[in-house]
């Protein structure tokens, strides 16, 4: 195997530079307006960062922990809210029981 192929075999899902599976994929260069949901998730992350509840590095770690099929299927900000939730649970800022109860309410 070539050196570069050997390296590529070891890359993680999010580590996309030069990934062969995307080399022939077109880039969608059309503008996509952000949704209200996107902006709210973005702002929530910003506030949690500014208040030192979680770092941007923790956000990234949580995104990188998403299994490949979900990582590629989920929209950008759906990955974010998943990582944010993961981190809040890890830190005990919210508990699993509280989240379950809140989700059932809605």
């Amino acid at each position: 195997m070539d050196k570069e192929a050997e390296r590529e075999a070891k890359r993680a899902t999010h580590d996309l530079g030069g990934a062969s599976k995307f080399m022939c994929e077109a880039v969608d260069v059309e503008p996509h307006e952000l949704t209200e949901f996107d902006r709210q998730v973005d702002a929530l992350r910003g506030v949690l960062g500014a208040k030192a509840v979680m770092t941007v590095d923790e956000l990234r770690r949580g995104i990188e922990a998403i299994p490949e099929a979900d990582y590629l299927r989920l929209s950008y900000y759906r990955r974010w809210i998943r990582s944010i939730t993961d981190n809040l649970l890890k830190h005990g800022v919210i508990t699993e029981a509280e989240l379950r109860a809140e989700l059932e309410k809605a």
Partner: peptide
């Protein structure tokens, strides 16, 4: 749904 619930809790 996650966003709504998490925001309410926070």
């Amino acid at each position: 749904r996650l966003l709504t619930a998490v925001r309410a809790l926070l």
